[in-house]
Write a protein that binds this DNA or RNA. Structure first.
Lengths: 348, 348
DNA sequence: TGACATATTTGGAACGTTCCAAATATTTAA
DNA sequence: TTAAATATTTGGAACGTTCCAAATATGTCA
């Protein structure tokens, strides 16, 4: 129950050296004599010294706080939890600590959280922006020389680095797969058209159709909320179309699940009667019935990539905006009708 | 690209007042004249002032950093992500910010992370300890007057507050349910016996058996890793027992899934041929086939409760150790054989 | 041995805030 | 009009660190 903090001065006094020497030891400087270092270290342990980073940052003109801020839009979505874990991996091995916050898609909350992180002097920020985030929101940060890396959703117009998965290639491979299974009329279901991710995935769909020699029909693109409910809604509209789609690529897995629900409600069995492909490969995709064919993106990988990029910029002291796309791959399971046999995947 | 930071002094100069007045405004003091306040605030906005919490903490003898540290042992487990979200809810509405880190069950990592948080001057800590955490590890924190709340796994011997789910009652209700379905020989499968949670759940099993008028047999308790693989292993041992169990309560849902796998490998159908009950109610439990009967604990609730407790202690300035158990409830689905009809649960 | 180089240590002076005691304005009461 | 009360503002002096320039110790060479 020590009332007062133990400071470098206390250590210095106890070790019979000056505070400057203690500071040198703290920073692992090679200037200090080996014996002195040992002595100081042992005294520090003895007195239970705790480094005061606040004081240090104060002197060091900021920038060196060794905190990386991470802001995600939905922590309950395991996709983002994985992403945070990926960030943590590289960030921690570089001696930084992660400061994770969740915005729950609230722009106001995002503003608060970012402001708070700034007050605490983060060295850099990794953010998966909340929906409808204004690209200008991060201007002050970069103006202050704090590197920002946007992940998952890119922010067109913002002059910051970003790491996004290769949405276009992923959607192309999904369409290609369905075309190879013989489908001619393939719908694109779900998602809000005002997001960059939607644009990318839709573009992938178009190129995929083209590559497969299939016509692109505007009416086969049906947007909806990117949720299970949205999926139900979208398939409801799709099924009555003149174009008679027999398969659908979905904006994400949630939509795909909703599409499956909607099909069953109409006595159609996903997989055999209608092919469904999702996007993201959330954990539930594997366990679902039928197991969902989907485009697997590697959230941990995105996190790691983003963190590397950020650290590079922090170290360089210069934030050169850079864009990285990470590879994705199609995971074929049952919902596309390609195989129906394997019931239980071995649990690793 | 301002090179130098904007400080209170800059604001003071520009607003024609003293730095003390600016400080007063910053703290929302009622001493300052309304007109002056407005003036200062507008100048702050104008110059893009950013509060330097480090400097403030330095003066304020620590304690008031308004950061709450949250340490979890496995962020990829959605249980803990939910918990963190629960903490965030109450913590943020109290004007604190959350500082979340993940230990991945590594004790060393936990030590690092906690040390780092301490350096950054957290006001309090919420921790779900890594396996085999030494109760003494948090002694220095509480000695320094930093409130600590342990969640999910309690730490017997540590003089800190804790919030755990009612493991005992949960397991009792699971056993009771199985007994009511007519099972006489019920096994307890999975989990490492060296953890407090295991002890609690096992105790619940014993009381449940007793309450149902069934005998407790040591051999029906089979421990294993608390994972899917551990479940496979445990059911393998259970099935050949003299006691011929016809049902099992499992340490957690992961074990329960493994038990289902193991049963199927022996051409036994979980639910009809052998009843299985899990614990935790992870998201997959509902979507699994058969849907898992399990004891639902509310991770967000635990998070919220823990945060409330912590804030109370922070505000009181006094860390009275207190233990809270949160209620759990049995969710009956298919894997216990109680009902087999409903195939698709409506997706909310 | 002296003169120089090299290795180690060291007192201040910052950094940006809050707190305190005291100064100054303004209002109220007589 | 003045004294007393109240409302507002204000200069330092901290807080615990790092940095700098300079001091001291130690070693080397002739």
């Amino acid at each position: 129950m020590t009332k007062t903090r133990v400071t470098v001065i206390d250590i210095a006094k106890a070790a019979g050296v000056s505070k400057s020497t203690v500071s040198l030891v703290l920073q692992g400087s090679s200037l200090v004599n080996e014996g002195t270092r040992a002595k100081v270290n042992s005294v520090m342990r003895e007195l239970g010294y705790v480094y005061n980073r606040g004081a240090a940052n104060l002197r060091q003109a900021g920038a060196k706080s060794r905190i990386v801020g991470v802001v995600v839009n939905d922590l309950t979505n395991s996709f983002f939890a994985e992403l945070a874990v990926g960030v943590d991996m590289v960030v921690q091995s570089a001696g930084f600590v992660q400061f994770l916050s969740n915005t729950s898609e609230s722009i106001d909350r995002q503003r608060e959280v970012v402001a708070s992180m700034r007050e605490h002097g983060i060295s850099g920020l990794i953010v998966s922006p909340a929906r409808a985030t204004d690209a200008a929101d991060f201007k002050p940060l970069v103006a202050a020389g704090i590197p920002v890396v946007v992940v998952v959703r890119n922010l067109p117009g913002a002059k910051v680095s970003s790491v996004v998965s290769d949405n276009q290639a992923g959607m192309m491979s999904a369409v290609k797969h369905l075309a190879e299974l013989g489908h001619k009329s393939i719908a694109f279901l779900g998602g809000f058209p005002d997001t960059a991710v939607f644009d990318d995935r839709l573009a992938g769909y178009r190129s995929g159709m083209e590559a497969a020699g299939l016509d692109y029909h505007q009416e086969l693109v049906i947007s909806s909320a990117p949720s299970r409910a949205g999926g139900v809604e979208a398939i409801g509209k799709a099924i009555v179309l003149a174009g008679k789609p027999t398969a659908a690529v979905c904006f994400n897995d949630a939509v795909a699940f909703g599409v499956c629900d909607g099909l069953r409600a109409r006595r159609l069995e996903p997989g055999s009667d209608f092919a469904v492909v999702g996007f993201d490969d959330v954990i539930e995709a594997q366990a679902a019935v039928p197991a969902l064919t989907t485009v697997s993106v590697d959230p941990q990988g995105i996190g790691r990539r983003g963190a590397q990029l950020l650290l590079k910029q922090i170290n360089a002291g210069k934030a050169e905006a850079e864009t990285v796309t990470t590879a994705v791959r199609l995971v074929v399971r049952e919902s596309c009708g390609a195989r129906r046999s394997v019931k239980i995947e071995t649990g690793l």
